[in-house]
């Protein structure tokens, strides 16, 4: 195991741990970093108008790894995720400082086209959001709009649905509305839709929070299968899910501003998942993963 610059000794009492939340505000523990970095955030700060939503986040996402971002509500993990493919641009007041490098290219550089960024970095949302079209057209939509060169769309659809472990369930009803599928199937359809455009990185924003446990386990199995082809970054509220599927985990928390009370999100600890869960170095991480707050 790599040596960690531990900021606090572990094993404090709960009260001490909660006290520590305020004391150790800016302390960050960065553990072992991935060797083959696909994306990284460098001093990422996000503002909504005057509101400082995320403070100085430095993360690296490794190729063919699943990185989980966990933390209590309002800690900015979804905001960070949405910055990674510039979906945060859709919020009119949002402003980003620092840089997000994708294969070394800052995607917030002035000449970068956010549309092109999203072709490479796909996204799956919290609530399944299939288009009000047939299953087939849901998949074919992405390749069509980005002008992908396709020999036979039927093959693209089949490949995407197989890739999302949905083919056997829907192969006889491709022309039916996607709204006829169950919630879990809809979410896997959304994953299939994303992989149809052959992205490099897939962002998932709490992909299982609207699903029942069986559908959740199917999506988790799917994520583990997809890891060999894609780099996956997932935001989750579910710590067990992070522990089950992810290779690395980033723990965020929120710090209230002393005067306004606005909560600014910040990164506390980033390490291999097994190290974070077995041996957290920051007392805040330990308090969160042991269920003492958040």
């Amino acid at each position: 195991m790599a040596s960690h610059p531990a900021t606090f000794s572990t094993g404090q009492s709960p009260a001490a741990a909660v006290d520590a939340l305020n004391v150790a505000d800016d302390a960050q523990t960065i553990g072992a970093l991935p060797d083959d970095v696909v994306m990284e955030t460098v001093n990422l700060n996000v503002f909504y108008g005057d509101f400082h939503a995320v403070h100085d986040v430095n993360l690296s996402f490794g190729k063919n790894e699943i990185t989980a971002m966990i933390g209590p509500s309002g800690c900015g993990k979804s905001t960070v995720l949405r910055c990674l493919n510039r979906m945060n641009d859709l919020v009119p007041s949002a402003r980003v400082e620092g840089s997000i490098n994708y294969h070394g290219q800052n995607i917030y550089a002035p000449k970068v086209d956010p549309i092109a960024v999203r072709e490479h970095i796909g996204m799956v949302f919290q609530k399944p959001n299939p288009f009000p079209k047939s299953i087939y057209d849901n998949i074919a939509y992405g390749p069509r709009v980005i002008g992908m060169k396709v020999d036979n769309m039927d093959d693209v659809v089949e490949e995407a649905l197989r890739g999302a472990a949905l083919w056997d369930e829907v192969k006889d009803k491709l022309k039916q509305s996607a709204y006829g599928l169950s919630g879990g199937q809809q979410q896997r359809l959304c994953i299939a839709r994303t992989i149809a455009t052959k992205p490099d990185v897939i962002l998932m924003d709490e992909p299982c929070s609207a699903l029942d446990p069986i559908a959740t386990s199917k999506v988790e199995d799917l994520m583990l299968q997809m890891r060999k082809d894609y780099t996956i970054i997932v935001v989750t509220h579910n710590m067990q899910q992070a522990a089950r599927v992810s290779d690395r985990t980033a723990f965020f928390t929120a710090r209230p501003d002393e005067t306004t009370g606005n909560r600014t999100g910040l990164l506390v600890e980033f390490d291999r998942t097994k190290d974070i869960f077995a041996n957290p170095h920051d007392p805040r991480t330990e308090a969160y993963i042991s269920g003492r707050f958040g």
């Binding site: 493919n85 549309i115 072709e119 959304c190 994303t194």
Partner: peptide, 20 residues
């Protein structure tokens, strides 16, 4: 969610409006 789903696939605002 429909608009975001479309934009996240790399569609332009115009394509999203016209097709979704």
């Amino acid at each position: 969610e429909i608009r975001q789903g479309s934009l996240a696939l790399g569609a332009t605002v115009w394509q999203t409006t016209w097709r979704q």
